[in-house]
Design a protein around this nucleic acid. Sequence first.
DNA 1: CCGAGACATCGACAAACGTCGATGCGTACC
DNA 2: GGTACGCATCGACGTTTGTCGATGTCTCGG
Lengths: 116, 116
Amino acid sequence: MTSDAGLACCTPLATGAAMSAAQAEQVAPLLKALADSVRLRLVSLIAASPSGEACVCDLNDAFDLTQATISHHLKVLHSAGLLDRDKRGVWVYYAVRPAALAAVANLFDTAALAPA
Amino acid sequence: MTSDAGLACCTPLATGAAMSAAQAEQVAPLLKALADSVRLRLVSLIAASPSGEACVCDLNDAFDLTQATISHHLKVLHSAGLLDRDKRGVWVYYAVRPAALAAVANLFDTAALAPA
DNA sequence: CCGAGACATCGACAAACGTCGATGCGTACC
DNA sequence: GGTACGCATCGACGTTTGTCGATGTCTCGG
């Protein structure tokens, strides 16, 4: 139950009609996974990486946190479907899943162009 | 400490350089406020309202939750700077603060156009 | 086969969160 | 003034969350 297939489409926040309770409960976990400064930086670090992916060992050095804590945060992001996990030899590489971020972006996209 | 003045600009998730720890800690509260299905629906309901605002009494009817709980959620959204509060007579009207939503949208905007 | 290193998992703990019932505070109407 | 109503606040509760140290699992090199 780790990867989410149908996380796509969702009514943007202000598209004329309010979003349904079911849709809210579908998107909320994505936001919940991102609603943490550490996880936000993790995603940012991975997304900003030239290769589009980052090794856990590198991510670990970017924080003053235990390896266990970073691993936990990565697990949360992976479980939410935001990160892809790829084990190569001894190292594990995480990459952002563009579709997931796009789903979230879609939420706020239309909302931004509210009345001035 | 309820309204936030400098919630604007923030490095989008994948703009080439990773976001700083300070920026992450600035944006995370906004996401945290939105990372709840009830609050997401509240914002959606208010944003989708024709007048751009909604009375608490109406919002209250849209959920199977106590009035105290809805009031609490509205307080969280208001404290995060996402909602404006306007008391008119006996009723209180909440309206979305476009700038706050735009700040969040900005985060994911550039991120969506990651490598294919 | 054995040791070392890279991550994940486990168990624990304090802090934060979502929800509720009860109560307080304004406002309007009789 | 009294009463009814809309909303906020308070106190309490069970649950979830972020963090840690310790331990487990896998992989590679000797």
